[in-house]
Design a protein around this nucleic acid. Structure first.
Lengths: 153, 153
DNA sequence: AGCCAGACCATGCTATCCCATAAATATCCA
DNA sequence: TGGATATTTATGGGATAGCATGGTCTGGCT
């Protein structure tokens, strides 16, 4: 298993610690010790989370823009510049920095949302709305899972 | 055999466990140990179930969207965020989370309905009505199964 | 000294493992 | 063919390990 799946809501203690869902930790496998990367989402009041290895890939994707282009600069700045590298403690928790907690308006609980190869962290109430909105979008715009036709190998 | 067919009604014990029908388990073959994925159906008060492999497939297809695109986020939230990964114990049972049990109004029994490559889990009484409705639809609208002509390999 | 992050220890809950039983089905042998 | 014996399946329950959570302690940094 290598995907982040399901949603889990865990407690955020006074020190700013939350348990990373056990299934997320096992999805990371032996790469768990490398830690995870989180940063502010661009389109939502939530955090985006990736496994550490994935940053290489994101970096590579940025190369598709011209060097010194505004797009690359903007994306790189808001992704890499704002990223935080978090490590799990012995009990499988990470400590969320105060400014990130504030950004997504977390209070007592944090909801981890598995999105396949990435995950998000939401304030539970806000995520409920987000879930409805996402569902509505899928229905209204008739979004479907693309076939594998255009796949490169 | 690789398809889920027939319907089976098994007991849901107080711990929330239910036996996966033996024929479903053998349909999974050696992929049984990977577990199954279930999520709330969109059009019915029931759960939809797939073998785990389908998730890898969906994940790969989602990679065709840009990272952080609305399309990818909406789809991933609706599909991955709402999915639950279950695995069988030594006796061939799975544990259904309480919120899913509530969603499809299960009480003492759960009905597994084979639908080919997927299956559904219903509250027995509700499924009886659903069965009548489906039959009526097929008859009234003279629904038929399309040929394979237009298939892409 | 004072603060904070990280390491370490403790606890309650529950999911999971394992064993036992019973019914249904299959197998075998006379 | 009939009947007795395995095997599989569904189910129940107790024991255990894992997980989420809270707290304390310590060392480093300011």
């Amino acid at each position: 298993m290598a995907l982040f799946i399901s949603t889990f809501t865990n407690k955020l203690d006074k020190k700013g610690r939350v348990s990373v869902p056990a299934s997320f930790r096992s999805a990371l496998g032996d790469r768990l010790h490398l830690g995870i990367v989180v940063f502010r989402a661009h389109n939502h009041p939530c955090l985006e989370g990736f496994e550490w290895d994935r940053m290489d890939e994101i970096s590579a994707r940025l190369e598709h823009f011209d060097l010194f282009s505004d797009e690359q600069d903007d994306l790189a700045t808001s992704v890499f510049g704002e990223s935080v590298h978090l490590h799990c403690d012995g009990e499988g928790r990470v400590m969320l920095p105060a400014d990130l907690i504030e950004f997504c308006a977390l209070d007592d609980y944090a909801t981890f949302v598995g999105l396949g190869r990435k995950f998000q962290i939401w304030q539970p109430g806000l995520f409920e709305e987000r879930k409805k909105a996402a569902r509505a979008q899928v229905r209204e715009r008739r979004l479907t899972i693309p076939s594998d036709k255009g796949d490169k190998a």
